[in-house]
């Protein structure tokens, strides 16, 4: 037995130095050169930390573009999807209620123009993005709440639409809303 366990124990210690000491140290050192220095890319407004570029946050005031529904209430010290199955009756009621609420807050928008992302919860509960259509459908409401011309807001959305090679195009909600605030 000793002949098996002694090398097992020693080799475990040696591999731990390699995999848990040297390897993370290398990644950490390289990350110092990365955007955000490995601490996450921080976003400031008037010198105050207001969020992380990649992490979604709650926007539900009419003058801001809303983020997607979140099962984690946008608390980023946790993360969660809704884990609702596609046929769950309670879930479908909830989706219907979100749609009704959206239509009330965005008068003039047709059902067929509401993209499903605005009434379904994201995988992480921290989704930072919308599709271009998800932002476009909110333009009239945001423009009205801010007293801006819709064309001006549309230009801003276009400016913040990131075209991705091979992937879906997206709009970062935090960046877009900060740009809106900066207009004033």
């Amino acid at each position: 037995m000793k002949s098996q366990f002694l090398p097992a124990l020693r080799l475990t210690l040696v591999m731990m130095v390699l995999c848990c000491g040297i390897y993370p140290a290398l990644v950490w050192a390289a990350a110092q050169l990365a955007p955000g220095h490995g601490e996450g890319v921080q976003v400031h407004k008037n010198g105050r930390l207001v969020g992380f570029a990649n992490v979604g946050q709650r926007f539900d005031k009419p003058e801001y573009f809303s983020s997607r529904p979140s099962a984690a209430s946008y608390h980023a010290d946790g993360s969660s999807g809704s884990n609702k199955g596609p046929s769950n009756p309670d879930y479908l009621k909830e989706v219907q209620a979100r749609l009704d609420t959206f239509l009330v807050h965005n008068p003039g928008v047709k059902r067929a123009d509401v993209p499903a992302e605005l009434i379904t919860a994201s995988g992480s509960g921290l989704d930072p993005d919308l599709s271009p259509q998800g932002a476009a459908v909110q333009i009239p409401r945001v423009a009205k709440a801010r007293g801006l011309a819709p064309a001006q807001v549309r230009a801003l959305v276009q400016q913040h639409t990131e075209l991705v090679l091979f992937g879906p195009d997206k709009v970062n909600v935090l960046a877009l809303n900060l740009a809106l605030d900066a207009l004033r």
Binding site: G40, V50, H75, D77, D181
Partner: peptide, 12 residues
């Protein structure tokens, strides 16, 4: 973090 809308939260 205190978000743009004023919620206070943490980012792990």
């Amino acid at each position: 973090v205190i978000t743009v809308q004023g919620d206070s939260t943490f980012v792990s």
